[in-house]
Design a protein around this nucleic acid. Structure first.
Lengths: 244, 244
DNA sequence: AGGCAACTGATTTTCGAAAATCTTCTGACC
DNA sequence: GGTCAGAAGATTTTCGAAAATCAGTTGCCT
């Protein structure tokens, strides 16, 4: 069972489900679990990652854990210090904005290229992803306490964003997009419950998604990329406001 | 001895010398050595990386080797297949152009930001780096057989390019620039001897570096970034021509 | 001749102990 | 009380053997 599909930096746990049934090594499993927990804030920024603690938490012995940490290190989700182990990489508003702005740079370029190359299937995937997301959001509107519902919305949210750039032919742009998505999720996901409880904002988000989609489908690259950039930055502003 | 300075993705072996005297773990050493050998083409594209082979070659036992490979995997220099080990990531002209174009996207943005934020020290670093590179190139012009001389030129080449974006305040752009630099070096370094023996081209390169520097120093971002993009793509064209 | 199962050898991955290193505590000295 | 050296305990990293898996070969059956 190859890992080529599973090894793009920043690949989400959802996308990894396709190979979950395959023979993922223990280190691969550890990598995914830890990455998820870092992104969700369950492993806190700057938290030391002691091996006995990780062994208790995840049930893996040290070697797979170390391999997973080596990968997470290269993705800047953990920081290694020789002889003194690993800790979760810190977060900050500066880092958040750096990640957002870099993500804007990458994803607007990926969107531009998708708009150039996209075909009917690509358009269909966008429409379908938007539809699923929108319905899911509406069905669970204001439901800020149902974990499974929120996970479903998040999964569809991810699929929607990914579908926009689905026709981009640059492997590097797609990989970096996924990497930066993960980084920015570290700021957004811990605030999910609060954001989802904000009904008017939730409605706004849906509108923004639709505007991005519409501009994309009529192949208006300038408008689509502007809307995407604004959407990403608006989330940053919201997070900044909440964090104080 | 912290590894924060040593862990930026794609950091070159030269920059790592600053921490070489520190207590680098065996896995860190393995990572650096293997990365260098992959970039230099000594570990060939698509070559399986057998652990006994690596143990013989580098003198490390399996655990540090595995950790190093995990890092290289996240940097797309090796490909992992569950239960079947690792192999060096393949190269292709398509991949080269993807890496070059993505590098152009990242580095032109980094240069734009450096031009906005750069101060006298930054300018001084550029001038000094250009001077050192140019002198080194002239001193070793046409010397395509002296390894040490070529390494010196390459080191200075790297320092020059890095100095251009030295005043960029985005950690992400700097890290991604280093990562993409490493990727594109996989195509350039194996052809170094041939390129350095091409005297007229070598003189041209020097001229291009100067033009980029001059535009940067007068803060003409549009010209500087155009020249940088053209420089990077010209190298791609040269490689494409040689490879057939 | 082709297909399949079992076996053998090669290779990868994991395990846990040993070695190495760091951190904290204790006791002696000023 | 403060400082320093040594000891003890905690933690990390590495090692190499065992367990797990893969790849190739052999033998049997149709």
């Amino acid at each position: 069972m190859g890992q080529a599909a599973g090894k793009a930096p920043g690949m989400t746990a959802e996308m990894a489900d396709e190979v979950e049934g395959g023979a993922a090594t223990l280190s691969e499993q550890a990598y995914r679990l830890m990455r998820r927990d870092i992104v969700d804030g369950l492993l806190a920024p700057n938290q030391p990652l002691r091996f006995e603690f990780l062994k208790d938490r995840y049930g893996f012995s040290f070697s797979p854990l170390r391999e997973a940490l080596a990968q997470l290190q290269s993705e800047r989700l953990v920081v290694a210090t020789a002889q003194r182990g690993y800790r979760v990489a810190d977060v900050s508003l500066d880092e958040m904005w750096d990640a957002i702005n870099t993500r804007v740079l990458i994803e607007t370029q990926a969107l531009r290229e998708a708009i150039v190359h996209g075909d009917d299937d690509w358009e269909g995937a966008i429409v379908s992803a938007y539809h699923a997301l929108s319905r899911s959001r509406a069905r669970h509107a204001g439901t800020a306490t149902d974990e499974a519902a929120m996970e479903e919305v998040e999964r569809r949210h991810r699929v929607f964003h990914r579908s926009l750039i689905g026709a981009c032919r640059s492997r590097w742009l797609l990989d970096l997009s996924a990497l930066l998505y993960t980084q920015t999720e570290r700021y957004r996901r811990p605030l999910l419950a609060k954001m989802r409880a904000d009904i008017s904002r939730d409605r706004e988000i849906d509108d923004h998604h639709k505007e991005i989609m519409d501009a994309t489908l009529i192949r208006d690259a300038a408008t689509a990329t502007d809307l995407l950039a604004a959407h990403l930055r608006r989330t940053g502003n919201y997070i900044e406001r909440i964090q104080g």
